[in-house]
Design a protein around this nucleic acid. Sequence first.
RNA 1: GGGAGUUUAGCUCAGCUGGUUCAGAGCAUCUGCCUUACAAGCAGAGGGUCACUGGUUCGAACCCAGUAACUCCCA
Length: 889
Amino acid sequence: MNLQAKKLLLRAMSISTKYQPKQAEDKWYSYWMEHGFFRSVPDEREPYTIVIPPPNVTGVLHMGHMLNNTIQDVLIRRARMKGKNACWVPGTDHASIATEAKVVAMLKERGINKLDIGREKFMEYAWEWRNKYGGIILEQLKKLGASCDWDRTRFTMDEDLSEAVIDTFIHLYKKGWIYRGVRMVNWDPQGKTAVSDEEVIRKEVNQKLYYIRYSVGAGRGADGEFLTIATTRPETIMADTAICINPNDERYKHLHGKKAFIPLIEKEIPIILDEYVDMEFGTGCLKVTPAHDLNDYELGLRHHLPVVDILNDDGTLNEKAQILVGEDRFAARKKIAPLLESAGALEKIEDYKSQIGFSERTDAVIEPKLSMQWFCKMPELAKPALDYVIKGDIKLIPDKFINTYRYWMENVKDWCISRQLWWGQRIPAWYNEKGQWVVAKTEAEAEEQFRVSGLEFSSLTQEEDVVDTWFSSWLWPISVFDGFKDPNNADINYYYPTNDLVTAPEILFFWVARMIMAGHEFRGEIPFRNVYLTGIVRDKIGRKMSKSLGNSPDPLDLIEKYGADGVRVGMLFSSPAGNDLMFDEKHCEQGRNFANKVWNAFRLVKGWKVDEKLENTNQVAIAWFESRFNQALTEIESYFAQYRLSDALISTYKLVWDDFCAWYLEMIKPAYEHPIDRETYDKTVVFFENVLKLLHPFMPFITEELWHDEEVFGKRSGADCCIVAKMPEIGQIDTQLLSETELVKEIVTKIRDIRQSKQISPKETLNLSVKANSGIDYIGYKNIITRLANIGDFTAVKEKIADAAAFMVSKDEFYVPLQLDIDPEAEKEKLLKEKEYLGGFLKSVEAKLNNERFMQNAKPEIIENEHKKKADAEAKLKIINERLRGLAG
RNA sequence: GGGAGUUUAGCUCAGCUGGUUCAGAGCAUCUGCCUUACAAGCAGAGGGUCACUGGUUCGAACCCAGUAACUCCCA
């Protein structure tokens, strides 16, 4: 049997050489749940609170959620282990448009039309849908290990939360900050609702620019006088109510005061003058369509033009268009071109690129449309919300977003809060038969108001519209703690303001800014202290990961493949705050490999047998790792304080893989089938426990799994879990020991290098001598060096040794006597190369020291350092010269 | 059109107040290894005009100005 086969057999018999995440994940997640470790109730400890950005109830977990929730879970687990009362509140958002669209689609499949069944029946179906599918995403979060307090799960349409929406609506209305009016809004013809400016996504699109002739003057047709306009929307010419030219445009001076005729329908419209018209664009003549363009609408207001709206709510042409009635706007656009052509009114068609608005939720092309909507005044809400961020009461991480935030808050427009949908909180306004209205919480209160103001009514009807989804989610940090219904309850007083909010920069204005406004308006304080803005998860070639592109891996598949811990580590490896993350599955693989490394390190320690009689020969290694651990811990704490999670993870990774596994465990590892002494073993077990704690926020499952190994850690009580273990605190750091050990590592590496280059097997024992010019006591590290480099004798000498491979570490000389011939020429070449380099270095240092201006301007410690560099280099040069002389002789 | 950001090794990114031999890490690559925890591993190695051009400075990846490319936000 060869070695490979033997090894495979051995593996099959003992515990697996590979970490198997699956069972551990299910087991420990249930265990944590059963023991209520995620549960938080107010107590005497300091609270640490995060409210989840509620994912859409229609949503399924995507990579953005993975990143976002991994970060939140790392923060919450860390806080928990630092002795805070950690509370992470989960929940979902009802997402008006998206959900209503799904339900409408579902009904359509069953042959049911929303309008036929009416509002109440529709809401029944919608609730049925959400009860069936609404929780999926939260279940998926559990697979990731999210340690949310599930008992606190909220939904933005829960009764209490909806009531808060209605109450705040009434509150703002009474303050005069909510009003109703006809305005140009962004109309989504597919969702058949208004959407806010923020929900419109502008994209550049290839279009056609149509040049259309309008005949001019009384004798139209006869003398053939016409003017030409350029438009991308020929199907709206029937809604034109004027032609506009720039009064300064010499080409059209003769048209002042004349009339033009819309082709096809031959409707007479005035030619008006306004400097708004860009003489350079198109022909310099602009068709004015107040009903279907925001700028035209404003132009129309200035010139008192009538408004002719030729579009239905679904984007088809209505009878006011006179022609193409019933056609969809895009179909009409295609069909009108030949009509114009045959009427001799189409001059030419050009290709043209321009920005068009699309609905964020339905991706339909947005139609500017005049309609009666509800608005919320923003300036007074925005002012304090801006101040909190400017003054630093709320920190944005990274702070580069402050500028963007400020710009938006200083240029904020009134918020269109009504939506022509059913799924959501219905606006509490009540109308009589004449269309007069009041705002009231209930019909009875509304009736009372009508009576008080002496208005007649026989029956009242409630406003059909619901409020914008964000009008409920802006209350989230308050409403999840019942802060509206019961403003002084124990929860809100304890948990609010929350600590950290982790979200995507895309919704900084949509959501974050408005939560700050709501926090100030309804509680007089900030809703959270820090906003951690994650990047967008992109694929390898920089495209945003999306379902429609099909470039996003299914997160659950990733978890299946690499384990939840592996995926969490993979997500965090390259995700500094605010920077987009170029996702590569390779990172998850690296995360999985890391878990496996920890697993195997544990197998090693677990396999050791203690011999109580043995003496501890590992004091130096133990002292070193202790210092190294504390040094790394200092670094990691500092990264966390700066929200540099990626750096914190990388530091942890290196501490565990390089320092603990590659160096420390190798330093103390007993020879095969040899026992270990009690003291070293016990210390190592403590180190391992500390390592597990440090790793836990990043890799909760494997750490919990190992934590409970009875053989190594003994039997633990049911509540003694890694998830609630106390995070290690920074202890003593022996800097001299640390720096000397770095030299020791260098010695070991150099010896390994000699073996590699001279083809000496690692199994062959070599001897080593040191001529320590620096005065460092290398013999004190004898145990470490002999074990790691397989050295037999290690002695200190006063003179150099002949017939030995030589190398230098710092300014100390090391000799490995070898039977082999040493090639003096190669040796000489190496030394000369080093000498040349050192010479150059020394020259540059001396140049600095001889530079008067450097000596005048540089800080004293810098100068001192240059002196030291000089002395070191000179010492080293001296040794090299001696050795060169030795070789020559 | 306005604003912000990015540009450092093949890839993803660090590099803080300008000052160590400062040009770094991980991944990938190459070489050698089944060495009794781990081949999902170990040992070693190579790899960069710090986008470009100027300036400030005793000294610049870092500060300033300009240029280019890319990204995002707003109109």
